[in-house]
Amino acid sequence: MQISPPTYLAPYIRHYIFLENSGENMRSLRLFTDGSSGLILSGDMNLYSGISEERMPLSFFYGTLNGYKDFYSKGRFSLIAVVFQPYFLNILLKTSAGETRNQIVSVEDVLKDRLEIFQEKLFNKTSPLRIINDLNVFFTRFLSDRMNPDHHFIAAAQQYILSHKGWVSSGDLQRFTGYSERQLERKFEYHMGMSPKKYGSIIRLHYFLSLVNNGMDHKNMTMLSYEAGYSDQSHLIREFKNNIGLTPKQYLNTENKMAVNFIEL
């Protein structure tokens, strides 16, 4: 279940996702980059890193990803994923997004017990819609003293890249913002945890995914890759492997696409 935030929070939160696993089987999961950071909230989840096999915190922030992260779960769980706009984690934690890139940060380490009430509600099976409404109130209050003019700049630059489906040159962005290439690199690194070029490539890839997921797979892969702006199919395959760890064909054959950037392997 995917829920949009209220309009006034849309510049900071893309959407909420509620996921529930009622079975006992182990599940292999992959979170891959969509340019966003986010928060995973759970009261009863046994989630482990797919590489180190380290148990994840019940609730954690994740920074923007260069590629993908694998996890596996054991037993039943319910969770709410809060998918942030890329720069919102920087606002919440008051730290460079570059420092949290590809990182998992325990909620308890940075916010102490401020989100514990939401974990308890998930554990007690409170309606996810009610929890999301309460989260809207929490984030609204949290924003009141944390904004600065740079956040409005980075939001405008992000929307410019989104409106062009990722196809924005360095020169285009310099003319739009009035900043030099080096200034843009620094601001994107601090607020979003990646370069403008990297963010554009992610948006371009997800535009291609939207074409496929919205029922346009009647066209062949080459036609879709051209429509998304790729010069050739090998370029698309390379981007897929770097960001998702799969080929386009493998992605299409993945049965359980739980969210736009979250799949079961």
Rank of each mutant, 00 (worst) to 15 (best):
Ser127Leu: 04
Asn46Phe: 12
Asp145Gly: 09
Glu120Met: 11
Asn136Pro: 03
Asp109Gln: 13
Arg114Met: 09
Ile3Gln: 09
Gly43Lys: 01
Tyr160Leu: 03
Asp217Ile: 10
Arg238Ile: 02
Asp150Ala: 12
Asn25Arg: 15
Gln233Glu: 14
Ile203Arg: 05
Arg101Gln: 11
Leu19Tyr: 00
Thr177Ser: 15
Lys249Met: 11
Glu239Asn: 10
Lys69Gly: 05
Asn124Trp: 10
Lys94Gly: 10
Arg30Met: 10
Tyr72Glu: 08
Ser4Asn: 12
Phe88Asp: 01
Leu252Phe: 11
Tyr16Ser: 06
Ala157Pro: 07
Leu89Asn: 04
Ile40Ala: 09
Asn214Pro: 05
Glu189Gly: 06
Trp167Tyr: 08
Leu265Thr: 08
Ala228Asn: 01
Asn46His: 13
Thr64Ala: 15
Phe142Gly: 07
Ala228Gly: 04
Asn102Ile: 06
Phe71Asp: 07
Leu265Lys: 14
Asn21Ile: 01
Ser163Ile: 02
Glu264Gln: 12
Met147Thr: 11
Ser78Pro: 02
Leu184Pro: 06
Ile40Ser: 12
Gln250Tyr: 01
Asp217Thr: 10
Lys249Pro: 00
Arg186His: 12
Pro6Tyr: 01
Met26Arg: 14
Leu209Val: 05
Gly75Asn: 08
Phe71Trp: 07
Arg114Lys: 13
His206Ile: 08
Lys112His: 13
Ser78Leu: 04
Asn46Arg: 15
Glu181Lys: 13
Met45Val: 12
Glu264Gly: 08
Tyr16His: 06
Glu20Trp: 00
Gln158Lys: 15
Phe88Arg: 00
Tyr8Ile: 13
Ile51Val: 13
Glu120Thr: 11
Asp70Met: 07
Glu120Trp: 09
Gly23Pro: 00
Glu185Ser: 12
Asp34Thr: 05
Ala157Gly: 04
Phe18Arg: 05
Phe208Tyr: 14
Ala97Arg: 05
